[in-house]
Design a protein around this nucleic acid. Structure first.
Lengths: 136, 136
DNA sequence: CAGGATTGCTATGATCAACAACAATAGCTA
DNA sequence: TAGCTATTGTTGTTGATCATAGCAATCCTG
């Protein structure tokens, strides 16, 4: 079939993102995590006592949608909340949370390596800066 | 905030895809089309008398999900169906469908140009082949 | 011509993100 | 310090998207 779509960067971006997300998602599912969950855990680990809304801003997740996300992580005993002042709360990893986060990080790094390995060497190093130019 | 995520190609892929999809989606919405609709119209235009399931295979859309998609395009008078044999049907653009498709193509090409323009020149030509290596 | 594969379709469920609204609190400014 | 505005966490709802299973009709092939 004649298909001009893969010539379009935007379309290939869509397809590549979907394909890789499906793949990584399946691997993270073995830990009971989704990509969002993993990224939240990673960010909390790197930024002790972040606040839920600051996290949302960084990840472009609306405050309202952080609620069920954090609730799930808390219910699983991966994060804790401590009141910072009357309205804000500090987020931090529990021991189990740190373990889970490190396991996720292992999966993610292995996956990223595989991704890069698929790309012909002469294009490889250009992907990240090109992608980041599109959204940052 | 300390954020190692944008260093990960997979994460940047996710974010870039989401950001660009939102942007292009808004522009195509002025035509009453989503990205999927546009890609279906484009593919039908290039392949007269394709069948719905062949289209689905090419775009990785399940047969079941093609139904409401095509129904919408047909209801808007953009495509027609003609029985090919007892069970298959040929899809083709109407006049209005071709016009809409060309308008969409204009928006898409302009958008793709803008995307590439955002990327520093030395990375630019590498994006498409790198992306395609990830999913094709 | 018999059986397996294909096509189009119905129906359904899960997931996800966007939106509006609200009460409580924090923090700035006059 | 009193008052106003912005922020935080939350609820509830909505729409869009996608995967899955199943079904009847039709086809193709051995």
């Amino acid at each position: 079939m004649r298909d001009p779509l893969p010539q379009l960067p935007g379309y290939s971006l869509r397809r590549a993102a979907h394909a890789t997300a499906t793949e990584l998602g399946a691997r993270l599912a073995t830990l009971g995590l989704r990509q969002v969950d993993a990224s939240v855990l990673i960010l909390i680990a790197q930024n002790a006592d972040v606040t839920a809304s600051a996290l949302g801003r960084q990840l472009d997740i609306q405050r309202a949608n952080m609620v069920p996300l954090l609730k799930k992580l808390e219910d699983e005993g991966l994060i804790e909340r401590q009141p910072l002042d009357g309205k804000s709360q500090a987020l931090l990893l529990t021991g189990a949370g740190r373990e889970r986060m490190e396991a996720a990080l292992g999966i993610i790094h292995a996956f990223e390596d595989e991704l890069l390995a698929r790309i012909p060497p002469r294009h490889r190093e250009h992907l990240l800066p090109a992608l980041n130019a599109l959204w940052r």
